[in-house]
Design a protein around this nucleic acid. Sequence first.
DNA 1: TTGTATGCGTTATCAC
DNA 2: GTGATAACGCATACAA
Lengths: 333, 333
Amino acid sequence: MKTTITDVAKQAGVSMKTVSRVLNSEPNVAKATRERVLEAAAELQYRPNLAARGLASSRSYLIALLYDNPNPNYIIQIQRGAIEACRRHGYHLLLEPMTREQASGPDVGSLLSRLGVDGVILTPPLSDSIPLRREMEALGLRYVAIAPGDVGTVPTVRMDDVKAATEMVTYLIEQGHRDIGFIIGHPDHIASSKRQDGFEAAMRTAGLTLDESRIIQGDFKFRSGVKAAETLLKDSANRPTAIFASNDDMAAGVVSVAGRLGIDVPSELSVCGFDNTAIAQIIWPKLTTVAQPILQMGRKAAEVLLDRSQNDDPVVHTLDFEILVRESTGKPK
Amino acid sequence: MKTTITDVAKQAGVSMKTVSRVLNSEPNVAKATRERVLEAAAELQYRPNLAARGLASSRSYLIALLYDNPNPNYIIQIQRGAIEACRRHGYHLLLEPMTREQASGPDVGSLLSRLGVDGVILTPPLSDSIPLRREMEALGLRYVAIAPGDVGTVPTVRMDDVKAATEMVTYLIEQGHRDIGFIIGHPDHIASSKRQDGFEAAMRTAGLTLDESRIIQGDFKFRSGVKAAETLLKDSANRPTAIFASNDDMAAGVVSVAGRLGIDVPSELSVCGFDNTAIAQIIWPKLTTVAQPILQMGRKAAEVLLDRSQNDDPVVHTLDFEILVRESTGKPK
DNA sequence: TTGTATGCGTTATCAC
DNA sequence: GTGATAACGCATACAA
């Protein structure tokens, strides 16, 4: 037999309402009573029933994570962060994977309202789905967008790609590099232009010229990194001493070309990436890269939802990234 | 105002019990009535309240996924599979990440019973935690273990590593390879010895001798693949025409060494891995590898939990893997 | 084939 | 500061 709140009340010699008060840390309970109740609850190993609580309070103690993201590591970290925050608030995280099409389709509202969740976290690229956001607003659902393209119209948690790229390039310059190659990401991704902006800003700030032949278009894939590196490194008499790729996959491609050409990394060529994905640590030398605060964004998003004290203004929370200096970068010869 | 089951009943001109019957697809409802109810429900956009339903039926419509796994892709796929099955049954998946220590600790029971979930999925390495399993049994919680080390004492979903390795090597032999190198995985992992067993079985079946110098100990890491390849490939006059690494990271290491040594993959050296992790598709040439039925295992695990028709015998469900032939293997010269 | 009455375990209301 | 009692929305027995 499961112990209920009435069992605890009996054991403590009070009414169930008082027990409820204690367990929800409401005011107006005498200290002695409170302690007696707590003791009784512990003794009986009382666990509140989520369903009953939800029914009575018309809250579900659940928040939903909506995602359609091909990057498992990203999602897993968002989850971890969100779960961490949820646990602190007595909440649980519900997973709702869906395609972009579904998210913009007619059934989302039905799905979401059926869930009866108390809040929703949107992850990219769903963060940018206007139909989805409309639906949420129509349903009166509180939500937070992680890293949306347009900042300012909705409660947001994000990081600053421009600044991160700037700092990475500044680090290379401080190491003594003057001739730095850059590989642009996929042209459809908002992050690509931001990272390029950061690169160019840092170069300009340092008074270095932007040589167009040093800037190659890529598409975030390993092979495009390979191709870009083949171009950048083909002339052994005139090649950059460092290459900054807009993500780790492309940086790994650069490292592999360097290996094939007999160019030592990092003594003859520094290479750095972006995102700190698995490959950055798998290959050797391990990549210097930018670690996004992914877990922290997940945690912050949940906190914004759960801290009822926070209002629902479209506040933008910008979290700090980290530059991870590993074995693939160093001073030029 | 939210529409409840009584609203629907009123609208359809029946009792709430009949509505309940229809919505739970219970028998003994006239077709006409059923349709009338369905119509009314649709019209009113009725969504059953999870909490109320749970409270009344003393089921939570929730199953929990317990995990402590460093591999994001693995967990994400298990999740996807489990969610798929859950959706079909009107269930939802709750995430419970925890460390091995926590899983064996005293608080798990409290955590799990507080949740009131209807079932639990255990993923490796938690599948092997005896204290955890004991706790579940003590609590009367139904559970399924994914890929536990010991098969037979608990409801299990898994795949056959030995068979997969055997088939991979058989494929290489069919391609014409006779001299095949093998890189063993981390000695602490159960999968390592199974994969080695499969390799050796296939070689023996084909009547090929097992040359010990062709079998190198690795540890599942990229670098150990690099080292093993350096050993296997150092003598250009006497080297294997194919190398089978026990996982993709090590296989990627082999490919990178081949590139450095000017050995073309696959025309001069076939390379294959195991697990179909991200790196297998990121690098070039893409790796021939074994795809575990990870998503399917997640789905099956949830199904075993949710199909009440299935009894709780420690049935072992062994799912099919897939050999993915990509660009890193071919016929020897 | 359908309906009525009751209870699930908690929070909310309002009185004391 | 504390308690009785009524919701909350649904499923379950048991009738009819």
